[in-house]
């Protein structure tokens, strides 16, 4: 609109921009401080105190320490990658066909089955009974305990079903009339059309796997099988030794990095992949949120 902007409005717009800059700083500064801390060596930390915005020296000692031979961080990264890749693949394999079948209006009994799914959102057995099921199904202390107990998120499954509703039934039915079998229709007609929703929900699962730690904390006894979030948690409660299988390693270094630098370095290592990826995947998340807020 080419309507002339009043002076009051100009002032408001200016203030709004300034406010947004401060707000953005509020979101970013914690990361800046931690990133800076991670590259401050012992000497500079002793001289300048713990709060550093711009480091004077650039000491990668903390990163050398966490990636040194026998690194628990690298191993835990492997566990995290396992749960992100294998976990997400299984999530989609269990969620998508289920959602697709539930979207078939002609299938008898689909409404009760949808209620059967939805009820698990409303009511839970709770922490202890679920823990006991994991314990006595033999998953306890295996990597599968990070994947199998959370195969289907009922919310996300229902979002997917709502998407499948939007695929015109006429498309599938004309393929059926042309002689295609239902599995062929699923693979050749529906699957290519479903890439947006598979990406969206797949990313939901992947980020969830990346950030999860509580299941690993209760279902795994062996620290050697823990994902990176759990190692970070141990380090935060002042146990910097857990970064390596050889706890003496830190004391054998020429110039051991300060504990805060190690904490900062592990925070960075656990966060940087998300920092780089999320600007590109956020639009899928936004889409997912909006899909979820509209009832299908």
């Amino acid at each position: 609109m080419a309507v002339s902007i009043s002076r009051g409005e100009k002032v408001f717009n200016g203030c709004n921009v300034v406010f947004m800059i401060f707000l953005s700083a509020w979101f970013i500064i914690p990361f800046v401080v931690v990133a800076s801390t991670s590259v401050v060596g012992a000497a500079e930390a002793a001289r300048r105190g713990g709060l550093v915005f711009i480091p004077q020296t650039f000491d990668l000692g903390a990163y050398q320490a966490i990636f040194a031979k026998g690194s628990a961080i690298i191993r835990s990264y492997g566990v995290t990658l396992f749960r992100v890749v294998v976990g997400t693949a299984l999530n989609l394999l269990f969620t998508a066909p289920f959602a697709y079948a539930l979207s078939k209006r002609s299938v008898p009994g689909r409404k009760p089955i949808a209620m059967f799914v939805f009820f698990t959102i409303l009511f839970h057995g709770g922490l202890i009974p679920t823990y006991l099921v994991v314990r006595y199904t033999g998953l306890y202390n295996t990597l599968w305990a990070l994947v199998i107990p959370q195969l289907v998120n009922p919310w996300w499954m229902l979002i997917m079903r709502n998407f499948f509703y939007t695929i015109p039934e006429s498309l599938e039915e004309s393929a059926l009339i042309d002689g295609a079998t239902p599995p062929m229709v699923l693979l050749k007609v529906v699957l290519p059309l479903s890439m947006p929703v598979l990406t969206t929900i797949g990313l939901f699962y992947a980020v969830w796997h990346w950030n999860s730690w509580f299941d690993a904390a209760i279902y795994l006894a062996d620290i050697r099988r823990m994902p990176v979030q759990n190692i970070l948690r141990r380090i935060l409660i002042n146990a910097t030794e857990v970064i390596n299988d050889n706890p003496e390693m830190l004391y054998e270094m020429d110039a051991p990095p300060p504990p805060d630098a190690i904490k900062g370095a592990v925070i960075m290592v656990a966060t940087v992949p998300i920092l780089f990826v999320y600007p590109f995947i956020q639009k899928y998340f936004v889409k997912g949120v909006l899909l979820g807020s509209v009832k299908g």
């Binding site: 066909p97 059967f116 799914v117 839970h124 057995g125 009974p129 099921v133 195969l151 289907v152």
Partner: peptide, 17 residues
């Protein structure tokens, strides 16, 4: 597969109450 999953990891814990 999804139904079996829900039975074991969502409904069995409900019985476990």
């Amino acid at each position: 597969p999804g139904v079996v999953y829900l039975l074991i990891f969502k409904y069995l814990p409900m019985l476990g109450i």
